[in-house]
Write a protein that binds this DNA or RNA. Structure first.
Lengths: 263, 263
DNA sequence: TAGTGGTCTAGACCACTTT
DNA sequence: AAGTGGTCTAGACCACTAA
């Protein structure tokens, strides 16, 4: 492990930073992995080595490793060590993330074109999903999403008006506008989880034109609700993805007691 | 918090059990939630209360809470407390589950027909996903999955032979045979997580015949790897779903530090 | 026998919210 | 002022693996 330790040794942790120590350490290791200095399958320095190298406690090292583990960047083999995960974790719905975040993470330039911004009375199905009474209105926001200026998806979001007062087209026309960033930064809303249903659809004329795909080609429709903490619905969304340029990925964890042989 | 504490107080942790303390505690709380004794939105006892109640250290309490957090059963609000998440998480791909488990949960009768059971040398892409060396072999298991005797999906699984010695067609031809149940019950393997990529495909003759769909109809291809705890790959799987009878759902949680205002 | 991750203890200080 | 989760320390023993 001398090699990896040497590389890490050049770095340091800033104890006065607002970033937690464990997070700084996870960033260091993540950078080594993403820069290719630690290849898939390579063994990381042991937890005790990292402990000594950075003069931190083992629990702190483990917090950093847990973070990398959750992100799918490393895997642990008990009694053997911690290793760089094989290959590239396909991004996507590992966690709840915005299109802008996804594209940025993939190293592509996110972009968009605002097609519609209006305040409407939602269809009953949407009102129900958002737990709105009959007369409450929503913002309807339709956007074409681009990656490196190439059309990738057609996104229609419905947002309860009372949760985002004064939301304006300008917020969404800003460069790299992300609806989720607006929720979190402008309105201080804490996103929690999402529910989505996926199904394949055949491109209609409207999608053919905007997404620049062949007529009758296969697209992926993803539809569902996004929630804040305390399960407050904040968004009902329909996204139609190009399936030839976009890989849609899913991660799931086995839940305790999901097993058939346990109580 | 007296109420929840009282309920927990009747229970106890077995320090001599092979199950870790934190896991036992997470099970206790999970049971309270699933039995409805802790309703959605209810506040859990604080970490310090649980610490005192069970005479364990706070780190151990936090391990238990982390487990529940990852499972989406609770959410934390800093400076406020830990709360039970909304109860009505619809089933689906919220957690890693088998087709048999899914159908049973939906109140439909799961069934299947074993189409192929063989031991093969896997294609390089599959061997890599399973982290196998060149000469290691896999079981190839192809099954038609039914719900109420109606074809729903076409499932091809690749399982490292050395992880499931003596796996036999009989295991899979048994009534309600679930591969995941076999992993867990027969081999004592602990499933942990899955990675899947979803894309729409056009039905070929083979699928048209087996799934009883129209020629050139749209199907959903779901492909990826299933892992045991510690990220040991146990299965590479390709499933082709009928999209007219099967809704594919996804749940995702917002990750800490996923937000764009944090680096 | 030395090294690994897995688990656990018994403290500590912090920023923040609620009372 | 009291309580919360967030972070961190400095140890410990375990089962298991590999040399």
């Amino acid at each position: 492990m001398v090699d990896a330790l040497t590389k890490l040794g050049k770095s340091h942790l800033d104890r006065r930073s607002f970033k937690p120590i464990y997070f700084q350490l996870s960033e260091l290791i993540q950078n080594l992995i993403e820069d290719g200095e630690l290849s898939p399958g390579a063994q990381l320095p042991s937890e005790r080595e990292l402990m000594g190298q950075f003069d931190i406690s083992r629990n702190t090292v483990r917090l950093a490793m847990d973070y990398l583990l959750k992100a799918g960047l490393v895997y642990r083999l008990p009694t053997k060590g911690t290793f760089v995960a094989s290959g590239k974790m396909p991004y996507g719905l590992y966690g709840l993330s915005s299109f802008t975040e996804d594209m940025t993470h993939l190293g592509r330039k996110p972009g968009g074109r605002l097609l519609d911004f209006s305040v409407i009375t939602p269809a009953p199905r949407i009102a129900q999903a958002l737990r709105l009474s009959n007369f409450q209105q929503v913002f309807k926001i339709e956007r074409l999403r681009l990656a490196d200026d190439e059309p990738m998806a057609l996104n229609t979001s419905y947002i309860p008006e009372h949760l985002c007062p004064n939301l304006s087209p300008a917020d969404l026309e800003a460069k790299n506008a992300s609806l989720y960033a607006i929720f979190e930064k402008k309105y201080g809303l804490m996103l929690w989880r999402s529910e989505r249903v996926v199904e394949p659809v055949i491109a209609r004329d409207y999608e053919v034109e905007l997404l620049e795909v062949s007529p009758r080609s296969s697209l992926l429709l993803v539809e569902g609700t996004t929630y804040l903490v305390e399960d407050q619905p904040i968004e009902y969304v329909k996204v139609i993805y190009r399936s030839d340029r976009f890989q849609f990925s899913i991660h799931a964890l086995r839940r305790p007691n999901q097993r058939t042989d346990e109580s």
